[in-house]
Write a protein that binds this DNA or RNA. Structure first.
Lengths: 343, 343
DNA sequence: TGTTAGCACTCATTTTGGTCGAGTGCTAAC
DNA sequence: GTTAGCACTCGACCAAAATGAGTGCTAACA
């Protein structure tokens, strides 16, 4: 049995309807739709076939049918081609919101997240740029006590990271500045990844301050490792999902918010993969068992040509993929532009 | 009609029971309790009086009674004096968790929040130190483009803030360092508040760089204003409240999480007031209508003698005030010690 | 041969009515 | 002042019945 044109049309109609109503859809509903020239009986026969093919499922005998994951997959991969474009009005509003007041990347990202949540009515997740994808602009050691200095790492996009470094006693602020200058000179404009390679070279040249330099470098390295799997994640619109009947069960809600609280799981959920523009993970495809009945749509953003982070939407499986995809495409592009200008 | 000793005893028993079960408590339940030598009928009479006095309410005619806000207030103010102390085991565990690995204040605070949430099974909120309560340690201008520098403000507790400053074209890194040094020298160890007072004095001395200095100072000032009402807030254990029957309604849950998402409302909720050790706000007293059936308990923490921020617990009105109070007292003190040592 | 009307059937949901039991208020007796 | 007794209230629970959306199958139709 094959998916002929009529079956496809009916399946699409069912999915569309289910996305809107969240109620199992019956043959009559489809038959009544304008453009469908068949009686409920005919539709029933086709639905029966579609069920056998694994595209539909029945919650119970006398209910309508709901699309299976396989159906959504087909929908997303094939049936959705005619991407419903956003209205120019919508685009404009989004652009305006994005290019709002702030020039600080943290604020921009938080801003973008709430905007995404508000326009999609789902939950938005944004992963901030990872340390390893950034380039060093400036390094600065600042004394904070006899034994400790704060190493401040300024990167492109003006992202600032800091870490404590032990220093030999008796060293003064000016000496620290001199060291900072050397480090900056050697590391500036290198991606943070490159610190490792330059490591021994710098050490060889560093004379008196060999020990301190070594410590500074290893702190950067440690920081890299730590933060690469711990870059900031901003979540917005968690409560939005409670508007959907899928989440009327408090227990499901609890699990859901537990996931949102765990940065680790979230990171896993929106992990970047492939160079794909937009990635769609339907239900169990997202790999987080607690979120089996959520779908996750993600897109990457970049600054200049470097991949930076990911923006994503979490919603019920019957989410409006078409709209979400368009929005993510648009926003990731806009965000990339903003960041590239900030370089 | 007065609250004699027996009435008080009965009221306390009712509150205790209701805190444990969340079920309206009837006369028989109280009568059966060991130590109560009265029949249900007598208890009923007293309960009727207590209702008239405004301490109890009946959900419907044939249900038991539930304590009113007035009752909880009395409970908290008078009846709870014999503070149930924490076991030394509990204290030890908490101390250990608090003095965990990290030396960075952000990590310490996040850590403390999850610990509070885990041990109380309610929601924990911690307001990070406000900028204006900190002292400047070091100022540093770092060039990020022809026209912009990043001003990095290192304060005590190694808290780092940064802001963009316009700079005249053609100025180089060493000059910026010189300026940074002047600024640092003039402002070091002053509370950030004092920047205003030193303002004109610094300007008068600053010669060539008058303009830049002025800008730097006003940026600090702006930052102060901004951040003082926007200091970071960490929330943990939001989903915990979903375990309580009070929140089995999805709509309530939605409102609740909406509040947790809004830093502004949260800040209002745990606003510091008075020098009180621990503040308890019962139900509507918390001033946030959406959280009418939540209580909020807060305590302040300090570094050395400066008030820094607030830790708080949000829970259902029938929360275990006794335990929560003890925990907050203990944790705020422990946190204060840790921060004072970091100075 | 594909389409459809008709019909018996299924089954979740809603409605209805009845019982149960926890709890109350009141009264009268102790 | 305390308590036993009793009628009463009212939500919770349960089972039976009604409802209705939807199905599968069959036979008739074009």
């Amino acid at each position: 049995m094959q998916l002929d044109q009529r079956k496809t049309m009916i399946l699409q109609a069912i999915i569309d309807d289910y996305i809107n109503t969240a109620v199992p859809v019956g043959s009559r509903t489809i038959s009544r739709k304008s453009g469908v020239g068949y009686s409920p009986a005919t539709i029933r026969n086709e639905m029966s076939d579609l069920e056998e093919l694994g595209y539909l499922a029945q919650p119970h005998t006398s209910a309508g049918r709901v699309p299976s994951v396989k159906a959504y997959r087909l929908y997303v991969d094939e049936l959705m081609k005619d991407s419903r474009r956003l209205t120019s009005d919508e685009r404009e509003t989004m652009s305006e919101t994005l290019s709002g007041r702030s020039r600080k990347i943290e604020a921009i990202i938080r801003n973008a997240a709430t905007m995404l949540a508000d326009t999609t009515h789902y939950t938005a997740v944004i992963v901030a740029p990872q340390l390893s994808t950034l380039r060093i602009r400036h390094l600065q050691l600042v004394p904070v006590s006899d034994k400790l200095a704060l190493m401040i790492i300024v990167t492109n996009l003006s992202i600032v990271k800091d870490a404590l470094v032990r220093i030999p006693e008796g060293i003064d602020a000016d000496e620290l500045y001199a060291i900072s200058r050397t480090l900056t000179r050697r590391l500036a404009d290198k991606p943070l990844d490159a610190v490792r390679q330059t490591f021994s070279e710098i050490l060889r040249e560093s004379g008196t301050y060999r020990r301190l330099m070594g410590e500074a470098l290893s702190v950067i390295e440690k920081k890299l490792e730590e933060e690469d799997d711990a870059s900031d994640i901003v979540v917005s619109g968690g409560p939005n999902l409670l508007n959907y009947p899928e989440f009327s069960d408090v227990n499901k809600a609890k699990n859901y918010f537990a996931v949102l609280e765990s940065k680790e799981v979230l990171r896993e959920l929106v992990r970047r993969d492939g160079g794909m523009d937009v990635t769609i993970r339907i239900g169990p495809e997202n790999g987080v068992p607690a979120l089996n009945d959520c779908s996750v749509v993600t897109a990457n953003y970049r600054a200049a040509d470097d991949a930076m982070g990911t923006i994503g939407i979490i919603g019920p499986i019957r989410m409006d993929y078409n709209r979400v995809m368009s929005i993510l495409e648009y926003v990731s592009r806009a965000l990339s532009e903003i960041l590239s200008d900030m370089q």
